[in-house]
Amino acid sequence: MAEAPPRRLGLGPPPGDAPRAELVALTAVQSEQGEAGGGGSPRRLGLLGSPLPPGAPLPGPGSGSGSACGQRSSAAHKRYRRLQNWVYNVLERPRGWAFVYHVFIFLLVFSCLVLSVLSTIQEHQELANECLLILEFVMIVVFGLEYIVRVWSAGCCCRYRGWQGRFRFARKPFCVIDFIVFVASVAVIAAGTQGNIFATSALRSMRFLQILRMVRMDRRGGTWKLLGSVVYAHSKELITAWYIGFLVLIFASFLVYLAEKDANSDFSSYADSLWWGTITLTTIGYGDKTPHTWLGRVLAAGFALLGISFFALPAGILGSGFALKVQEQHRQKHFEKRRMPAANLIQAAWRLYSTDMSRAYLTATWYYYDSILPSFRELALLFEHVQRARNGGLRPLEVRRAPVPDGAPSRYPPVATCHRPGSTSFCPGESSRMGIKDRIRMGSSQRRTGPSKQHLAPPTMPTSPSSEQVGEATSPTKVQKSWSFNDRTRFRASLRLKPRTSAEDAPSEEVA
């Protein structure tokens, strides 16, 4: 009796068929016929556990003709996506030579605008209408194809895939403007070719909807975003200037109206006075309405000098805001240009540092100066060695804690006790272990408590650290204090090793 083939788990290929790579489910599931010992083939499952149809090819690079078809379809799909992405970037994010197409579109729109203006002049109306009709045909074809291509290429973005995504893309403001202008152009052409009475009025009214094509030149909205950011950044200043200017306008108009309503027919109503105030304070000055009385002229002159300053403030605020924003954008561009080279330089330096163990090129690091100058660790070890030599091999803490019996001779020589300023008595072995921070803190506390006492003391002649007598400086308080830590004499004296002298005989010792 033939044995059933062993159940295979995992992703390994079956024996005897090495080139074939078959994806098997996580659990080997066989058909009921196979479990019962029949000759049925096992049921194939996909990666998600769903059964595959009987005629479906197995996924994998070596699955025969199905694999070749899959490779061809995958390559075609990649080319399709690449083309779609390229078209989308050309239309929505132009760079380099892609601006040539947008310059061509701008020339078409500008020519249409010029011809629309010439069509309103009686001398050039006939020729402009003929040229404009031909140009409209060209623009309908160009913009119609462009609109379709834009909607198709938007599928390269995830949020615009599918018919719902394309509809979302078509609802964008600039796409809506394109659609309105396209419909208006078709209506103008249809009305112009019919030759009816309505054609002339339709051409004159709907052609100027094509002015909206100038708005579509900035599809990404960079200028509007820049203007919005400047207004938002200086909103408080703008609101303040406009508010005060509006108050000056209504008060000036009302007072001039009261002064001129009886003697001047131009100011017969408050609305006429508001019109005069707006034209005057905005420095336009049509001259259609002028005050005639001396009181009205004085009020107009005073409020004009006051109001023009507030009406001119928004222009200066926006101008300075634009300058600052442009400078910030230039700085951001320079930062973006330098970020990648800086990151590459840091990575290269780290690779060199991690692979080169000698690091002989590091001549400006802490390790280099640590090898030249005595390190703080060596100074600490030197302090501890000196203290243990004086205390008979014991550390200062051990000397303080060691009990001394009554009447027993002390094995240590008597030492002079010292007192730290602002604290109780402490171990004499710690007097010379006072660090730089303690010395600086002690000097600052003395300056806070009594700076007036220092200038009363007789001035001391500054001497070099080499000429100081070591026996005289029994305490860190003898170090000359200065008002600034930048004094080199104080810094050098604080680094010197001060020996400890006994109370009975204080021989001067120098520590090399």
Results as ranks from 00 to 15, higher is better:
99 F>S: 11
198 F>C: 01
244 I>M: 04
128 A>D: 06
183 V>A: 07
335 F>V: 01
157 C>Y: 15
113 L>V: 06
292 H>N: 05
243 Y>D: 01
12 G>S: 08
45 L>R: 12
277 G>E: 00
169 F>C: 01
178 D>H: 06
316 G>R: 00
283 T>P: 00
25 A>V: 03
173 P>H: 02
124 H>N: 03
85 N>Y: 15
88 Y>H: 07
125 Q>P: 05
135 L>S: 07
260 E>V: 00
268 S>P: 05
94 P>H: 02
296 G>D: 00
58 L>F: 13
104 F>V: 14
67 S>C: 09
345 L>I: 08
193 T>I: 01
131 C>G: 03
152 W>C: 00
143 F>S: 11
1 M>R: 02
145 L>V: 10
287 G>C: 00
177 I>L: 05
150 R>W: 03
226 L>P: 00
141 V>M: 13
345 L>H: 02
147 Y>D: 04
213 R>C: 05
202 A>G: 04
217 M>K: 01
175 C>G: 15
253 S>F: 01
210 Q>L: 14
84 Q>P: 01
249 L>R: 01
101 Y>N: 00
334 H>P: 01
51 P>R: 11
84 Q>R: 10
218 D>Y: 04
273 S>A: 03
315 A>S: 07
122 Q>R: 09
326 V>A: 01
77 H>D: 14
78 K>E: 15
278 T>P: 00
248 V>G: 02
77 H>N: 12
239 I>F: 04
287 G>V: 00
198 F>S: 01
331 R>W: 00
264 N>T: 02
266 D>H: 03
326 V>G: 07
152 W>S: 01
60 G>A: 10
11 L>P: 06
27 T>K: 09
205 S>C: 03
236 K>E: 13
128 A>S: 04
217 M>R: 01
340 M>L: 05
223 T>S: 12
99 F>Y: 11
7 R>S: 07
75 A>S: 13
317 I>T: 04
90 V>M: 15
179 F>I: 01
176 V>I: 06
212 L>Q: 08
34 G>A: 06
293 T>I: 00
132 L>P: 03
111 S>R: 02
38 G>A: 09
13 P>R: 03
31 S>R: 04
310 F>Y: 02
194 Q>H: 07
143 F>L: 12
114 V>G: 06
126 E>V: 08
204 R>S: 04
210 Q>K: 14
10 G>C: 07
299 L>V: 04
301 A>S: 11
262 D>G: 06
324 L>P: 01
191 A>P: 05
68 A>G: 07
230 V>G: 00
147 Y>N: 03
55 G>S: 14
87 V>A: 12
100 V>F: 00
85 N>H: 15
109 V>D: 00
199 A>S: 04
100 V>A: 10
292 H>D: 06
92 E>A: 01
250 I>S: 02
196 N>S: 07
100 V>G: 11
108 L>Q: 04
129 N>S: 01
263 A>D: 04
232 Y>S: 04
144 G>D: 03
229 S>T: 02
238 L>P: 01
153 S>Y: 00
174 F>L: 14
105 I>L: 07
38 G>E: 04
263 A>T: 13
51 P>H: 06
175 C>W: 02
67 S>Y: 06
151 V>F: 09
261 K>Q: 03
325 K>E: 15
288 D>N: 00
304 A>P: 00
181 V>G: 07
337 K>Q: 01
72 R>S: 03
286 Y>C: 01
66 G>V: 14
40 G>S: 06
84 Q>K: 02
51 P>T: 03
299 L>Q: 02
266 D>G: 06
171 R>K: 08
299 L>P: 00
267 F>Y: 01
233 A>P: 01
100 V>I: 09
258 L>R: 01
342 A>V: 00
86 W>S: 06
33 Q>H: 05
113 L>M: 09
66 G>C: 07
111 S>I: 05
254 F>V: 03
40 G>C: 07
329 Q>L: 11
297 R>T: 00
131 C>R: 03
190 A>P: 02
97 W>S: 14
235 S>C: 04
112 C>F: 03
237 E>A: 00
269 S>T: 04
291 P>Q: 01
335 F>Y: 02
95 R>L: 02
301 A>D: 01
76 A>V: 13
333 K>Q: 02
122 Q>P: 10
225 K>R: 12
191 A>S: 11
328 E>V: 02
68 A>V: 05
58 L>R: 13
147 Y>S: 03
104 F>I: 07
159 R>H: 15
222 G>R: 04
275 W>R: 00
330 H>Y: 03
35 E>V: 04
191 A>V: 12
105 I>M: 05
318 L>R: 00
4 A>S: 14
245 G>R: 01
19 P>R: 07
28 A>V: 09
69 C>W: 05
89 N>Y: 15
14 P>Q: 06
136 E>D: 15
36 A>T: 08
134 I>T: 12
9 L>V: 08
66 G>D: 12
242 W>S: 14
263 A>S: 09
44 R>L: 12
87 V>D: 01
346 I>S: 01
239 I>S: 04
279 I>F: 00
260 E>K: 00
239 I>V: 07
345 L>F: 06
180 I>T: 13
65 S>P: 12
101 Y>H: 03
127 L>F: 10
238 L>Q: 01
212 L>R: 02
97 W>G: 07
180 I>F: 04
226 L>Q: 00
328 E>K: 07
134 I>N: 10
240 T>S: 13
314 P>H: 02
63 S>C: 15
345 L>V: 05
120 T>A: 05
83 L>P: 07
125 Q>H: 05
70 G>V: 05
344 N>I: 02
24 V>A: 07
158 C>Y: 15
126 E>Q: 10
288 D>A: 01
15 P>H: 08
347 Q>E: 08
288 D>Y: 00
8 R>L: 12
119 S>Y: 11
218 D>N: 03
43 R>S: 01
209 L>P: 06
107 L>S: 01
325 K>M: 05
191 A>G: 03
163 W>G: 02
309 S>Y: 02
56 A>S: 07
174 F>S: 10
201 S>T: 04
94 P>A: 02
98 A>S: 04
124 H>D: 04
120 T>N: 07
257 Y>H: 04
166 R>P: 01
72 R>C: 15
168 R>G: 06
36 A>V: 15
91 L>M: 12
179 F>L: 09
40 G>A: 13
162 G>A: 05
70 G>R: 10
71 Q>H: 08
173 P>R: 02
339 R>T: 08
103 V>I: 10
190 A>D: 01
283 T>A: 01
85 N>S: 15
28 A>G: 04
290 T>I: 05
270 Y>H: 01
338 R>Q: 02
78 K>M: 07
336 E>V: 00
340 M>K: 09
310 F>V: 15
87 V>L: 08
146 E>Q: 02
272 D>E: 09
176 V>A: 13
167 F>S: 04
53 P>A: 14
183 V>E: 02
62 G>D: 13
304 A>V: 02
3 E>K: 10
207 R>H: 03
307 G>V: 00
229 S>A: 13
224 W>S: 01
19 P>S: 09
211 I>S: 04
314 P>T: 02
60 G>W: 13
329 Q>H: 01
257 Y>S: 02
46 G>R: 08
170 A>D: 01
279 I>V: 01
214 M>K: 00
280 T>P: 00
307 G>A: 00
92 E>V: 03
129 N>Y: 06
17 D>N: 10
32 E>V: 08
280 T>I: 01
238 L>M: 08
322 F>C: 01
54 P>L: 12
47 L>F: 03
59 P>H: 09
322 F>L: 09
16 G>R: 04
145 L>S: 13
50 S>T: 08
47 L>P: 05
1 M>K: 02
204 R>G: 09
188 V>L: 04
217 M>T: 03
340 M>V: 04
47 L>I: 04
